[in-house]
Amino acid sequence: MPLLEVRHLVKHFARSSGLFRASSVVRAVDDVSFTIEEGETFGLVGESGSGKTTTGRCILRLVEPTAGEVVFRGEDVLKFRRGRLRRARRDMQIVFQDPYSSLNPRMRVAAIVEEPLIIHRIGSRANRRARVDELFRLVGLEPSHLNRFPHEFSGGQRQRIGLARALALNPSLVVADEPVSALDVSVQAQVINLLMDLQEKLKLTYLFIAHDLRLVRHICDRVAVMYLGRIIELATASDLFAAPQHPYTRALLSAIPIPDPEVRRQRMLLDPATVNRDRPLREVAPGHWAAI
């Protein structure tokens, strides 16, 4: 049984009518299905507006989906009522992109990391303190800095704090939404290494949402490419990068700059008019799906 199964997920946002505009519906996520196996790193890539972030948030019900099923360990999360959802969330956590705005600036970092334990009424005060200490070490931070405020940490350290908080409840699934794109290049590699180490140590499953394809190729087992709310290609990372099938995937891969001044890549352009959004995914090779 896969850890997570997303079936026909739909999220429509209503755009209210304005002075010169009739009300309309934005189909941010439009019939998206995929599964994630336990221990896997599953990449969701796409450009702005592709629906990748909304998909991640729908899975955690931070945004309520319009339709579909999100089956986690065999149960449909979308059918859960409040109490049950709250328990389910212990097992599914999120790390946000921006380490500057996602931590409360008025809380000491010890309290930020401890908060999920308090909300879920876990352990005594002393237990919790010990756990926070342990989490701090786990993500490579100095426990002597626990009483500091977020602004006293660098971007990379703040992302580690966000990660410590996400791991406080021992989740099995972590949705990582562009976890390093706001960080300096030299610091990104540190955080990526940490994510890989933690996965091994804690047997984590990642839904990794990103636009940096070099990074996705490096850390993901399988990758889904989203375009205008739909998955247009899904394959193992090695198959996707070796033999992209959909014209959009080809255009996207050909746009990655190569860090070598003596290699020029042939760019492929995509005419959006030629993409038929309604074409279904079909299996073009074992485990390789494309909407072509």
């Binding site: 590699a189 540190q190 190729r217 860090p259």
Partner: peptide, 23 residues
């Protein structure tokens, strides 16, 4: 050298060569 080494590449899943510390 460190900036160039931190670009993801090489064998997938291998550790990236990070520069310690921060700017």
């Amino acid at each position: 050298q460190g900036l160039l080494a931190s670009i993801p590449g090489g064998h997938p899943g291998s550790r990236l060569r990070a520069i310690d510390g921060g700017v």
